[in-house]
Amino acid sequence: MKGLPYKIAGLLLILFSLTYGLWAEVPELPIIEQSIRNLFYHVSMWFAMVAMMAGSFGNAIRFLSSENMIRDRRSISLAEMGMFFSVMGLLTGMLWAKFTWGAWWTNDPKLNGTAITMLIYLAYFVLRNSINDPRKRARISAVYNIFAFVMMIVFIGILPRMTDSLHPGNGGNPGFNSYDLDNGLRLVFYPAVLGWILVGTWIAALRYRIRTLEE
């Protein structure tokens, strides 16, 4: 099996974060309390999503410069995986918000960013489905992918910094800022991010191979 080390590493890291995340020592914070553990499960989804989307974006650029269909198949497979992570991130986040803020959905810049990211990539899938010629589909959707990724980064990376957010670590919240440095949290969080990225790449690679076989 190709790339066995990274696949095993990814699985082990996820297993570690899922189990150790439940019994690790966490800082005691008001309001957030034990739900701080969601950092391992929820925030890592977003990191993995951005990594997948960035991979898709990179492949779209390389498709435009090389016209190589392999790049197109990688691009769409990674975008699908990114979409999956964003759905997971949204669900874990909503669950957490219900218990911490008391509502499933609030008017928060980060939530808006998520909603728009999902809309953008859903539009990307719609666009792909509406073109039949594979080469043309690849070229046009690569153009949209590049433009969409830049807009998404503006929306989730730049705009939220200019406004207040309810999210821990932003605005006037009992934030992670001082606890972000908590090494106990980092010990679980970073492996979780890495593990999900590795496994995400693995699944995307499988989707890519299915696509290749189909053609």
Partner: peptide, 29 residues
Amino acid sequence: LTSGIAQRTQGNATLGAILALPLLLPILQ
């Protein structure tokens, strides 16, 4: 850009709006 994309997909008029909508939100906000 999005209407250019929609035009290349051969006259799917609603597609342009679907593609543009999420991309316009950051600017409009």
